[in-house]
Design a protein around this nucleic acid. Structure first.
Lengths: 253, 253
DNA sequence: CGGGTGGTTGACATCATTCAAGTACCGTGG
DNA sequence: CCACGGTACTTGAATGATGTCAACCACCCG
């Protein structure tokens, strides 16, 4: 559970023009010129190990990021020591916009797996914010999208029972991963522990475990090691509260 | 419970330069020139009755608003018909940014009391978004702020018991109202029904009622008609999960 | 081989929901 | 003026979902 504090290693990273993420239909097509501007704004790629803090609560944040590979989550601690996971971050997601607007940050972000992040110094971003309206718009758009993910989690935690919550979370991640090409044969990497599920869904660890066991027995999915296989997408979807039927192409910065 | 569909009446509204909200320290001071630009972007004030829909889920939205007076809330419906309130909107809050980015809107917004809204046609906003970087930044900032409010509600609903949830919601609203000068002698207007509290907190109506009764018995606050009086701010604060100790001045658009 | 982490399970306690009944209040129409 | 109906609020008893606690298992890594 302890957060690792290693700074991580920095390298120039893949040129943005060759970014493999852009091949996905999940992202809005943009001009090479615009991509070049993003590249200039970037100060390289950061590599962090699973468990590392990407954003520390109550600290200033000099960087925005785009998650290039791996998983992360955004969370808040309660005074009683319990943790609420607000949303999960997947490749292509913008990381740290809210943290960059407020100082100190009101939440933390932790890497769930080893992650690669494209790093953008805040000053570079704010500079282009003024001179490149499209970029400003895209940032605002991505901020609104993250809020909409939290909105959906709020509905899940506030109104659904345990089985529906688990089904909803797994199904949502399944669809998001599918959109960026990380699902193969209905199966995908799944670096969460049951404790993470519990913290995201507002349930106890023991109850999450029992709920998962029940869903597994119903044959909706399998979960072995770090991988989930969706056995009955339709049934899982019926058991879940759906976020949105169609995923709009979104900006990739 | 039914949503009223009256269009509401439109009028030119108070000139932005004379906007009484700006007198509050809760808002960032800005130049008269900037205020004039906001005024030009505005297409008047809209008056809506309590219960009216400000944003309809699944519809397009041609306008952004700033809430000039009154209360509103943002919500999402679950498939089983239950409603989750995502956050409450108070005077000075930006309304409908997310809804303006996505079509169709993924949530609804309803007026809790009679409200007055400053209306901004989307096209006007996007036009200035390009030519006035400060405005673009402020919109993004306000979007991030709303997300941070939802984050906090998420922590509340996911990790606290009933008494803490109620105390937290009332205390948060108390502090937000105080910041904009709507608290007098520790008392303020409170247009929510217990059903609204239940929908916001992920609790049943009956349980909210019993919880409120208990808090009242403890002498933390009084609630009569449409008004709440905080009797023991310190105790209420201790019973609550605090959002943030200091409220940063924020943009008013 | 040993220790640690994450997963699994059962018994039991607690909290919240459901259901049902009843109250207080307010506006409306007779 | 009162009777009526509607809405919000109040309360209690029974039920059910979820949390707590404790033990145990499986696996990996050193």
């Amino acid at each position: 559970m302890g957060t690792k504090k290693n700074g991580g290693s920095i390298n120039p990273g893949v040129p943005c023009l060759e970014c493999p993420l852009r091949l996905s239909l999940a992202f809005k097509p943009i001009s090479d010129q615009h991509v070049a501007r993003i590249q200039r704004m970037r100060s390289g790629q950061v590599l962090l190990q699973a468990g590392s803090a990407i954003v520390e609560p109550d600290l200033q944040n000099a960087y925005l990021y785009t998650l290039f590979s791996g998983w992360a989550f955004r969370y808040k601690m309660a005074e009683n020591g319990s943790r609420q996971i607000l949303n999960f971050l997947l490749p292509g997601d913008l990381v740290g916009l809210q943290a960059a607007m407020f100082e100190p940050a009101r939440h933390g972000i932790i890497a769930l797996s080893d992650v690669r992040l494209c790093r953008f110094p805040r000053r570079n971003v704010w500079k282009l914010f003024g001179s490149v309206p499209d970029l400003a718009f895209d940032l605002t758009w991505l901020g609104a999208r993250e809020e909409s993910l939290v909105d959906h989690n709020m509905l899940t935690v506030g109104q659904l029972d345990a089985a529906e919550r688990v089904a909803t979370l797994i199904f949502s991640l399944y669809k998001r991963l599918e959109a960026i090409g990380l699902v193969h044969e209905k199966s995908f990497d799944f670096p969460l522990s049951q404790q993470h599920l519990a913290d995201a869904l507002g349930l106890s660890l023991a109850h999450v475990n029992k709920t998962i066991a029940a869903l597994r027995r119903r044959g909706l999915f399998e979960w072995t090691g770090n991988r989930i296989v969706i056995k009955q997408p339709k049934s899982l979807e019926r058991a879940a509260e759906i976020y949105e039927s169609t995923y709009l192409p979104r900006p990739l910065i």
